[in-house]
């Protein structure tokens, strides 16, 4: 138990519940330490589920939940988890939280459950989660680990939703399809806000490439490019 004793000094100083460090844990993953654009983790699901905005939002919420609580539970158990089997224990925690999400979604919104189908289960293999447990939750207090989970989940979700906005708008001409907020923006019928059957928009066609996963790769690539040219600190990171 020597290494844990070093990390936690015996005299506990009163720490603020929401100080600068805590704020940094929440905000850093949105910018300088974004799991997708900087750490390049969680790409598989970012390519797969982002063809529509609504399922992406649901996916983002699911990942935030799983990440925050697996960080919390791992951190609570960090001193009693045997080092030899820690990865397996972390996997058990992640897998059970994912099952909780799956069972809940199946009860609350069956159509989105069908749409996301296998990808909810695949949250288990999302490298962001395992990465945060190993890198953060195993060495930090529960409250900070929980915030770190929420921050990283938000960073992941934000990119997911930005990518999905582009893909759905240019691939299907709609936004939030399948949800009560459904908006029909551009398309070949009078139902759409911009009707492309005739008039000045008659050249417009939905871009079928946007519906395929490959489009997400281009969009994420462009986001990484913009992100790096906007924040020069990132250029030296990798």
């Amino acid at each position: 138990m020597a290494e844990t004793a070093v990390q936690e000094p015996k005299v506990k100083t009163q720490e603020p519940l929401f100080g600068t460090k805590e704020r940094k844990l929440l905000i850093d993953p949105l910018n300088e330490n974004n799991p997708i654009t900087v750490q390049v983790l969680g790409i598989c699901s970012a390519l797969a589920v982002t063809s529509l905005v609504y399922p992406s939002v649901v996916m983002a919420i699911a990942v935030i939940f799983v990440l925050a609580f697996s960080n919390l539970f791992t951190s609570l158990l960090r001193k009693s988890i045997p080092k030899q089997v820690r990865m397996i224990v972390q996997l058990v925690i992640i897998a059970s939280l994912v099952t909780v999400v799956e069972l809940t979604l199946k009860a609350v919104n069956f159509e989105v459950y069908k749409q996301l189908s296998v990808f909810i289960g695949l949250i288990i293999t999302n490298c962001i989660i395992m990465g945060r447990l190993e890198a953060f939750a195993m060495a930090n207090r529960p409250w900070r680990s929980f915030l770190d989970g929420i921050g990283n989940g938000l960073g992941y979700g934000a990119i997911l939703i930005v990518v999905a906005l582009f893909r759905e708008l240019f691939g299907k001409g709609s936004l939030f399809a399948g949800s009560p907020l459904e908006m029909k923006i551009i398309g070949p019928s009078a139902e759409y806000w911009l009707n492309s059957t005739n008039g000045w928009l008659s050249w417009y066609q939905n871009n079928n490439l946007m519906v395929l996963s490959g489009a997400a790769m281009f969009i994420i690539g462009i986001i990484i490019w913009i992100h790096r040219s906007w924040n020069p600190k990132l250029v030296d990171v990798s």
Binding site: S80, I81, P82, K83, Q84, V85, I88, V89, V92
Partner: peptide
Amino acid sequence: MHSTRYIIFFVLAL
């Protein structure tokens, strides 16, 4: 390092 008995107990309980 934890003992083997502890590891088995921990994993089974979890």
